[in-house]
């Protein structure tokens, strides 16, 4: 009987499912289950007393959400402030990384002597383990023995007194600069690859018609790059908005108010204050926001293309 059954199995239909089965099992274990648990956590009072006994944690309903979204109370205000900082940080970092990446890709599009070495050099910050680059910047940004103050104060005399770069409002500037340093090579990589697929004939034809280099860049390069650029900007935004390494290495778990990014806020509420319910509520809100941004992006993208 098993033989007859086996004979009826359509292997062509079953094979893909067998191939994909391990991946599905892992997806369930490492992504789907944690996400369900995460949403559940945001509805219970998961404080330090219940961490090792989660099922006993009292149901909180929407209490966690109303706490983090009550902007009259310190915690809600802190979240709103952190959201604002993160948004400003993401817009600046993505914008500037994109501009630097595009500029570098444009000037490196044509062959010239230094092209290969420069391309390799520009990719190094991206290849470096993120924390190694950030630690180096942390040293450079030290007030008394760092390179930045040596350059700005002692060599160029731009400041009378050596400024602090890792606390106060300056911390935000440091955060943006360091993040751009290790993120712009990715924008460069993507735009460079995109520009390589623009046919040379387009530029040649335009040149014959008398279009200047600048007109060629404006009309051909930017026009042809639009699909790549829209994807790239979304990717960069999603990645920057969840940035953790840069603030955590630069400032530890107690960043200046000006540089208090959302993921660090969530991390602190969970692993410093041990209130996982609040942390989970904030992560769910973060996820909803990122999904909303992606959905709006998709809508806008479709509209532009139609």
């Amino acid at each position: 009987m098993s033989r007859r059954l086996a004979g009826r199995v359509n292997w062509n239909k079953v094979t893909p499912y067998l191939l994909i089965l391990p991946a599905i099992l892992f997806e369930l274990l490492i992504h789907v289950t944690p996400m369900i648990v995460g949403v559940w956590m945001s509805f219970v009072n998961l404080t330090r007393f219940f961490i090792t006994n989660w099922l006993a944690a009292p149901v909180a309903g929407f209490a966690n959400y109303s706490i983090v979204l009550n902007f009259d109370k310190p915690l809600g205000r802190q979240l709103a402030q952190s959201f604002g900082v993160t948004l400003a940080f993401a817009v600046l970092t993505v914008g500037l990384s994109f501009i630097l990446g595009t500029l570098a890709a444009i000037v490196l599009q044509r062959q010239f002597r230094a092209r290969g070495p420069l391309r390799t050099l520009f990719l190094i910050p991206y290849a470096l383990p993120a924390y190694a680059g950030i630690i180096t910047w942390k040293f450079m940004l030290q007030r008394d023995n760092g390179l930045i103050n040596q350059l700005l104060v002692n060599d160029l005399h731009l400041f009378d007194q050596a400024p602090f770069w890792l606390i106060g409002d300056n911390a935000f500037v440091s955060l943006v600069v360091v993040s751009i340093w290790h993120q712009w090579p990715f924008a460069f990589l993507m735009t460079m690859a995109g520009m390589q697929s623009i046919p040379d004939e387009l530029y040649e034809a335009a040149a014959i018609d008398g279009a200047s280099v600048w007109r060629q860049i404006r009309h051909i390069t930017f026009g042809m790059m639009r699909p790549v650029n829209t994807v790239l900007v979304l990717l960069l935004f999603l990645w920057t908005f969840r940035e953790f390494n840069t603030p955590f290495v630069l400032f530890g778990s107690a960043p200046a108010k000006s540089a208090n990014l959302l993921v660090v806020t969530i991390y602190n509420s969970s692993f410093i204050q041990w209130n996982f319910g609040l942390g989970a509520a904030m992560s769910v809100l973060l996820m909803v926001f990122l999904i909303l941004v992606s959905a709006l992006w998709a809508l806008w993208n479709r509209r532009v293309h139609n």
Binding site: R242, F244, S283
Partner: peptide
């Protein structure tokens, strides 16, 4: 974001 998976 990784933090979404980290807490649970």
């Amino acid at each position: 974001p990784g933090v979404l998976f980290l807490l649970p």
